[in-house]
Design a protein around this nucleic acid. Structure first.
Lengths: 373, 373
DNA sequence: GCAATCTTGGTAAACGTTTGCCGAGAAAGT
DNA sequence: ACTTTCTCGGCAAACGTTTACCAAGATTGC
């Protein structure tokens, strides 16, 4: 310690292969304790020292080894996000939001997708456990209980969508499907639709069931009878939408409007309708769900029910943080949904025929009046 | 060791809070060395022992701590993937492929997106370094040299798209843009188009430049003059496509075909054309690039140039593995592109008018003949 | 029954940090 | 000049693994 000054590096820039905290300490002529304290912003280290340390870090391009740090501190700085499938545009938008909010809160994220496959789901959980995520958001809309117990056992906070255990350390994001879907149904009813079909999502997905239930309840509220033949099961994919619409087209009677469990399905339906030579919304109205970015540019632009990805992401991270800080044990967060009216919905065929100018089928000047619900 | 048998757990299922390798060893009445060897599939451990160990692991729901393992072994089991933006459907499809191939090869992946922001790019690199990824695929189509040096310094294998250093430990995935784009231009030329516009990507993106160059070269090959006014810069987003088409519409003369630097742009263009009341392909032909899933269901379905995400992903992982195993120092991988003809391309207006039946604008029976190039 | 071979256990070092403790200087106040 | 207060350095333990080593036990071959 007497020769502190002479030990000080002369600034030779040859970088050692080993880039320890030790290397930094030597280079800055301080102890490793000081370097560690500097990096971790311990307030007792004075400004001069800190500056020297940061300079050394910069010169050497040093950065701490996350796993060593996590190992000893017990904090990995990771928040896990389990999604259903990454190729459904809804999820990238969600991931983006989740990442942004997580980073705001000083976390990094670990993404894993289940592809609706229980085997992959267990792999996802395993990853989360192995990488020691501090909290996990399960956004897969269909959960496997037994595996999640392992997370609960280790006291890892979790947040679920729609449905989840009310055990301490877990929160649930309750999406108010009914609000948006009722708006959608009312919108259709106000336009005069009575024959409304629904293309659902996979039956085993809780969120899909919730949407279907909300639809059926909303129909009821509007005093419209539900024809079981017009409930057709899709799978939340483009192909599923196409297939579902094919089934509908093959039926005895065509509905005047189709509501879909998600936008991918709706786009599939839209496409099939186009293929069938029918016009939207003149011959058939379509409503989607999710309001993905693409919904704005379909032809015609898709009326859809929005569920805010950012709100979902923010609530998820907020819930996780609250658990990590021990502020809360269990809470439910309400996530709102609401209708966004675009041009895929209009009067049912036959009604108000006089309002429709036959030659104009492009969106620029469609004569179909719409009512903002 | 004399009392091995008595030490054997009686199967009491109370799980200790600490879930060490030590706990497993005790529970299975073996040494930690044996547990470690079992987990790592060291061949010398015999079947009986291994079975006992696996049972204990199963009973305790034990799983090794990845960071401790990584710390000592120097292998994190992570492959990094840096993408431009996750909300452009091209990338989720790529990520999916990359993950699948990585998992096949025993790796997990760490995704980071730059959002075309150099600051975020440096965060991405930092993450990759901190988490000690064993290799990094830079799929951002626009790279920042100085930061990548840090990866190179640490001998972390890298793979780039289109352009990258030819230094050892890095490979480049050379996408043959020209092949697909020439097919596209030839396809248009064969249909009779001479007035072909191009909506490019962001100028600073190398891949966008390559596409533009390939277009200009292909035009030349077909003996078509390039009108600079018909090269308009987009940004690879939907909005960019809409804006670009607006510019084109505002020009003195309209092209008969528009080729786009990616599908998102093309969909934006498609939408704007629809808004303008023009028909596709009757009034204007459109070709996209990437062939994202959505291209199949646009109205009309989009003729696009495909670049296989799976091929890209597979080549990336293959290259990374080759570097990790020391099999190779530097190599270039060719990635092919090819035209997929759908219905957004047809004869230019005026030409072969007699073939077009005015009333039929739906895809089911469009009279426009197409030629598979 | 003896030697050769194969497995296993115990031990310990290592990976790169964090963190608590204590003593040694330095700076500051009296 | 002497005490008090700060700040830093050195040290060491810990985090949960892997892995090399050697000795001991079990198994096999003869």
């Amino acid at each position: 310690m007497a020769n502190k000054k002479n030990k000080r590096s002369t600034g030779s820039l040859k970088k050692p292969a080993l880039m320890d905290i030790r290397t930094v300490a030597e280079h800055a002529s301080v102890s490793i304790a000081t370097v560690s304290r500097t990096i971790n912003h311990v307030p007792t280290v004075n400004a001069k020292m800190a500056k020297r340390v940061w300079e050394a870090i910069r010169e050497l391009n040093y950065f701490p080894n996350t796993q060593a740090r996590a190992l000893v501190s017990g904090r990995s700085g990771l928040l896990g996000l389990i999604v259903s499938e990454i190729t459904n545009p809804f999820f990238p938008e969600l991931i983006q939001g989740f990442e942004d909010v997580a980073v705001e809160n000083g976390y990094e994220i670990l993404i894993s997708s289940t592809n609706y496959d229980p085997k992959r789901m267990s792999l996802c959980i395993r990853r989360m456990l192995e990488r020691k995520t501090e909290g996990v958001a399960v956004m897969t809309f269909g959960i496997e209980e037994p595996l999640l117990e392992q997370l609960a056992e280790r006291n890892i906070p979790m947040v679920f969508v729609d449905v989840g255990p009310d055990s301490p350390g877990t929160s649930v994001l309750k999406v108010d499907y009914h609000h948006g879907i009722r708006q959608g149904v009312q919108h259709l009813a106000a336009l005069g639709h009575r024959d409304i079909a629904f293309v659902s999502g996979p039956a085993r997905l809780h969120s899909a069931q919730s949407r279907l239930n909300a639809f059926s309840k909303s129909l009821n509220e509007c005093g419209i009878a539900l024809d079981p033949a017009w409930i057709v099961e899709g799978d939340h994919t483009l192909e599923g939408g196409i297939l579902a619409m094919e089934k509908l087209l093959a039926g005895d009677k065509l509905p005047t409007a189709v509501m879909c469990s998600n936008d991918m399905t709706a786009i599939g339906v839209l496409h099939k309708v186009y293929r069938a030579g029918l016009r939207i919304p003149d011959d058939l109205s379509i409503i989607g769900f999710d309001d993905i970015q693409m919904a704005r540019v379909t032809i015609p632009p898709l009326t859809s029910i929005q569920m805010s990805r950012l709100e979902l992401a923010r609530a998820a991270v907020t819930a996780l943080r609250a658990h990590l800080e021990g502020t809360e044990t269990h809470r439910e967060y309400k996530i709102d949904t609401h209708l966004v009216v675009r041009e895929s919905t209009g009067y049912p065929p036959g009604a108000m025929e006089h309002l429709q100018q036959s030659g104009q089928r492009n969106g620029q000047d469609s004569a179909v009046k719409r009512k903002k619900v």
